[in-house]
């Protein structure tokens, strides 16, 4: 499998899901458990991605400059700072820690 295969297969899967929403009978979603699970799925996957993106280094877990950067990001979101500012701030915190302290 090449990167192009991955890009195209994933795109087809996501477009197929969008089309499926218009093709299946609407009463499927009226079951509260189905709607709830669809919502929670988004939350669980994003939270898992945050954990892996913050602590993962291949198959190892490491605490490095990403952890304080994420803490700063959480504080800024809590203060209702706009998305782009938060993302840049997180990058700057990690970059400066690496530059000044030699943190990994």
């Amino acid at each position: 499998m090449t990167l192009w295969h991955i890009v195209l297969i994933a795109s087809i899967a996501c477009v197929a899901l969008k089309l499926a929403g218009y093709a299946v009978p609407p009463h499927w979603l009226e079951k509260p458990a189905a709607a709830r699970t669809a919502d929670l799925l988004t939350v669980a996957l994003l939270a898992a991605l945050i954990a892996v993106q913050t602590l993962g280094a291949g198959q190892a877990l490491v605490v490095d400059a990403r952890v304080p950067a994420l803490a700063v990001a959480a504080l800024l979101y809590w203060l209702r700072v706009p998305f782009l500012v938060v993302v840049i701030a997180a990058a700057v915190v990690a970059a400066l820690l690496r530059l000044w302290t030699g943190m990994a």
Binding site: A73, V87, A90, V93, A94
Partner: peptide, 20 residues
């Protein structure tokens, strides 16, 4: 990595999940 883009990715995911 030198620009902290790996940390920016984690912060971006956090931004996607925050309103939920």
């Amino acid at each position: 990595r030198a620009y902290g883009l790996d940390a920016a990715a984690a912060a971006a995911f956090l931004g996607l999940i925050w309103p939920r």
